[in-house]
């Protein structure tokens, strides 16, 4: 399985442990990842907010690069995925519009034909690798752990963009958690809701209130930790957790990146997964895994 790997800015910036974990997990799962080092930021919705056409061109540039490699794009960020899928929705279907986009790509001798597939690691696990295969690789099942799935908005909405064939992608995270031997917290109401990150600069109080709400819901549902395929959610759920209204009143809630959870189960050391680089201590999780192992 070969992919044009698009790590996204945050995995190489604010959450370096994600990139680190993905590299290790990719190797072990047998994913051949060709990193698109020349690809630009998706804009995280902000370029689109400022200038939708610019956003569409910048992302089509990435798709064109993947097309040159003849590979589908694999992402590890819900936000990147959602932005890219939205762009595909506009650019792939309309030849005239794509022509306008391609005129701006011609500078670099790039051309996008409207065919590049984009997949988040989460979708790769279920649709390409297969849950059975993933299960077979588990050497250290996360038994006894109640993990609450936290998707991140953009990997589940709008569903017409991110799940156009209605494959039931909203639901994959629970399946993966189960495959790793842990118990997905099905009743977690916050799983497809907002972490508050996009409000961080414009309404910090609202942002932290949302973060706190999601964490409180996880605690109420009896989760040991959260698992997220989105580093931007991680920035808020983990990084801003001590700032939320709930902080200090109840136990801290560790938040794992998706590749970290996989890594633990398939036998990669916590150090290689960067679990020591979180703001909220992950020892609580590691203790459980050790018991299980």
């Amino acid at each position: 399985m070969k992919y044009a790997f698009y790590p996204g800015c945050v995995a190489k910036g604010g959450t370096p442990e994600l990139y680190q974990a993905m590299t290790a997990v990719g190797e072990k799962l047998g994913l051949e990842l060709h990193e698109l080092t020349g690809a630009a930021c998706t804009g995280a919705g902000v370029i689109t907010e400022r200038d939708p056409f610019a956003g569409d061109v910048v992302n089509s540039r990435t798709f064109a690069m993947a097309e040159q490699l003849g590979l589908p794009v694999m992402t590890i960020c819900s936000t990147c995925t959602g932005v890219m899928m939205g762009v595909k929705g506009r650019v792939d279907a309309h030849d005239d519009y794509r022509e306008r986009v391609n005129q701006l790509l011609a500078d670099e001798d790039l051309h996008y034909s409207g065919q590049t597939d984009v997949k988040h690691l989460l979708w790769v696990l279920v649709e390409d690798l297969g849950l059975d295969k993933l299960k077979a690789m588990v050497v250290n099942p996360l038994q006894g752990m109640r993990l609450a799935p936290f998707y991140g908005c953009y990997v589940v909405r709008p569903s017409k963009d991110v799940d156009p064939l209605r494959l039931g992608r909203m639901g994959y995270l629970e399946k993966v958690i189960e495959a790793l031997g842990a118990e997905p917290v099905e009743e977690y109401r916050g799983k497809d809701k907002c972490c508050g990150f996009p409000l961080l600069e414009t309404n910090r109080r609202g942002s932290l209130a949302l973060t706190g709400k999601r964490l409180a819901e996880a605690r109420d549902a009896g989760a040991d930790a959260l698992v997220t395929p989105c580093p931007l959610c991680h920035l808020n759920l983990d990084g801003q957790q001590p700032e939320t209204p709930e902080a200090g009143r109840v136990d801290a809630m560790p938040v794992m990146h998706l590749p970290q959870a996989i890594g633990l189960a398939i036998g990669i050391t916590p150090e290689r997964l960067g679990l020591h680089r979180h703001i909220i201590d992950t020892k609580k999780i590691l203790a459980k895994v050790a018991v299980a192992g």
């Binding site: 945050v10 910036g13 604010g14 902000v46």
Partner: peptide, 13 residues
């Protein structure tokens, strides 16, 4: 955001 992406091609949070 536009400026940072214009300068570096990527985001710096």
């Amino acid at each position: 955001f536009m400026d940072l992406v214009g300068s570096y091609g990527r985001l710096d949070e």
